[in-house]
Design a binder for these strands. Structure first.
Lengths: 192, 192, 192, 192
DNA sequence: AATGAATGAGCCTTCATTCAT
DNA sequence: CATGAATGAAGGCTCATTCAT
């Protein structure tokens, strides 16, 4: 009964960690700040997570779900049923994201930049998230150009994906929206 | 006399810091490791740089020069005099960079990810470096499509720039070369 | 019915603790490692033992029984009925112990070294165990030299005991068997 | 000038650490307590020692010197020039040590008990200290029984050494002086 | 019995920087 | 110009124990 409207401490810690990791970066955010924000003791934190990295992974996994949901929700509202409309809508979503929130770029790419070790568990989450996004574009492109050859469609999806990623990082760099606009405009041409 | 073939201590520190910052990230690299690698004392470091950030800035400035030189050198050798050839050559340079060195992505983008504060001096260097790269593409696009309208040329340059940035980050993410190839292939179409 | 072939949880914990305490030392072994090895929760541990020290005491008590049994068993097999043979056999037992097992010295002496407080309950177990060993030698010496004076016999037993203890600690230190051999050889002379 | 009557901070830390390590044990003594006793900051400690283990080693090395000096000093005062007198005097030194100070047994054996890892640097110091002591007895035995065979002398020295070590540990265990007395008495017989 | 979240002091170590020498 | 001791906060993490469920 209680349980349904209360979030568990673990989930609360993921939420707190998520906000801090995203805003300040993974490295710069210490366990101390997390537990002080949560108002709990060190040991309590470590009864929920065996390490900082475990919270980091939980963060990225939660963010994966959250981000994808938000994107799909945006598309549902703003795009038509046509796959091309959906693809273009993703670039609007990107622009909207920057404008509407405390935008600090892509959590996954930021964490990638902080994580040199290729075999890090964080890197696994990052790569997996990005593979999903690429697959998302691929599926829509396949639908849009159903009669084209597989290779051509694959190249197109890659290109759109790269444009999306490039736009995302440049918005973070310049704190401006033109990269999203430029990437969208060009993607529109590609879909003709 | 001595001075001409000896690198100054300051420059040596920049070189050491550069290697460590790039490989491990700016945050993860401590002053201690830098001075131990250089074989000097704490105080000596701080007589050359007033803070870690100052070394960070010197690093990015040095890297800006180094990276641009390496790129221009690559173009000089591998591209023809035609601007379109030069542009495409930049994507080969990108691929070659990953294959030939301990590739850890773009030092500037990595540092951007670690540096939330927009007013940070590091951010200024990052933005400046990227503006230069964009301007570089713009100049070549202008030359290539000299009869087109300014706006169209500007959009094209932005698009190529975004493709380049996206390819760069995805190579780092997937540790594969296809993003550079895909971005180059598409850029080739844009230049027709 | 069940009970006869199942070990109780308490005994299982003593066994697990014993192995870890002996191998790693009392201080270095944490409750966490013990419960994880046992596959139980923190609270469960504390429903069986009111403190770490209580488990420590149970360990030493169990070890006392185990070690004495093993020694007596060894003597039964390797020594004749003569008390002198039994005494000398104890030194063989010592050497065999080191060779045949993951030898880490005497659990009691190791714990003594970790336990400065004289009034500690652990210290009581340690002293008691060692008094038993001394009494064991005393009884055999008494039997062997039944016509000698009490004081002389007491001195001899002490001396053999000290040789045994010294050999034990030096085997641990040097990871070699010569101390047992030397102590045995000398004890043989004493018994002539 | 100042320097000659001031002890360096490093030496002061070794002194403080030595007292605490000996009284409480190596594991139980934390860096926190050491720096609080010294009245310095954590970082200061780590500018003098790169780790706790380094202080531990410095402690054992200092104790080696200190203990040997004290023993030799004792012998110089209490023993005659005869090697047998010197050997017996060592057992008096042992008894005196326990009576005159806050006796906690042998720092080396205590640390051995706390240090399972055979390749630990602490273990090296411990073994080296004990080898020295054995060699010390050996030299005196050689002098005393110059006409005996090498093997016999070696066995005798080992035996005296083992008696000494055994007495030492049992004094710590029982908090009584009889082990030193018994070991001495027996050693006296051996030297006849 | 059994669970595991909660505690708070502690673990060893590193951080960037300052400053007297 | 160089040294390295000094700082104090913070780094991630473990400790033995308690207690509501």
């Amino acid at each position: 009964m209680e349980q349904s409207n209360t979030i568990s401490k673990r989930e609360e810690l993921i939420e707190i960690g998520s906000a801090l990791f995203y805003e300040q970066g993974y490295q710069k955010t210490g366990i101390k700040q997390i537990i002080e924000t949560a108002g709990i003791a060190k040991g309590t934190f470590y009864s929920h997570f065996k390490s900082k990295e475990e919270l980091g992974i939980a963060w990225l996994q939660a963010r994966h779900k959250y981000w994808n949901n938000a994107m799909e929700e945006y598309i549902k509202i703003h795009a038509s049923a046509k796959p091309s409309s959906k693809i273009l809508s993703v670039f609007d979503y990107l622009e909207n994201w920057m404008v509407e929130s405390k935008f600090r770029g892509c959590a996954f790419i930021n964490t990638l930049a902080e994580t040199p070790a290729q075999d890090s568990l964080l890197r696994k989450e990052i790569e997996s998230h990005k593979r999903d996004l690429l697959a998302f574009f691929q599926a829509l492109v396949n639908e849009h150009f159903s009669q084209k050859q597989k290779k051509a469609r694959s190249q197109l999806a890659s290109c759109i994906y790269i444009l999306f990623e490039g736009a995302l990082i440049e918005m973070q760099n310049f704190c401006e929206t033109w990269p999203a606009k430029a990437a969208k405009e060009h993607t529109a041409l590609l879909l003709k």
